[in-house]
Amino acid sequence: MFRRVALLVLRKDVAIEVKSLEVVSTTLFFAVSCVLVFAFALVRDGSVVVDAAAGILWIAIAFSGTLALGRTFERERYAETLRALLLAPAPRAAIYVGKLLGIVLLLGVAELMLVPLVSLLFSTPFFARPLLFVGLLLTGTVGFAAVGTLFAAMLVRSRTRDIMLPILLYPITVPVIIAGVRGTAALLAETPDEPAALMWIALLASFDVVFVTLALWTFEPLMTE
């Protein structure tokens, strides 16, 4: 029942998004604007500050991820469908897993566009070590989404959710940003520092395990009003 409900929620989110493309298109546009804004700050005389590309990529992911989280849960709030989901006769954490997978997928799509864009604009060889880079992106995105999904779901009930989401989310996900940026920067160095990247991936993976477990554990009591 758990897996079934989680997958149903995921499929439903995908179906809605495929129909409207609203979150994907707005998130992408926002991510691109982010990249440009930071480019103006960090590019001087036509050359880029060291490691700026890694930083810009992860900042764009974090900012547009926050936006996507807000929009996705606004959709569940609009007709209070989140309450209807919570009434499904399955462990409530299944709803969390379904939403989490949806957010990860959405951010994955955004990254699919973002990475080539940043790579193009700053001529960064992200794919010098493709496996490690994808590993970083995946573990980082899951970590960010794991915390974000839980907080965004809780905030559906709150009047001040727009401002509260970043207030709650950023301090907690700083390790993800640090690990993502430093890991990416390690891969972008003259001679890619593979052990360092692996170490950051390990840190991100343990972050994912701890916070997904915590979220699964606290989701039910948090969502009961």
């Binding site: 809605i16 007709a79 209070e80």
Partner: peptide, 17 residues
Amino acid sequence: RHHIGLLAHELHLYPEL
């Protein structure tokens, strides 16, 4: 929750679908 049905003023439906 198999045995509970709720109809509220809010529709509990996805308008996009």
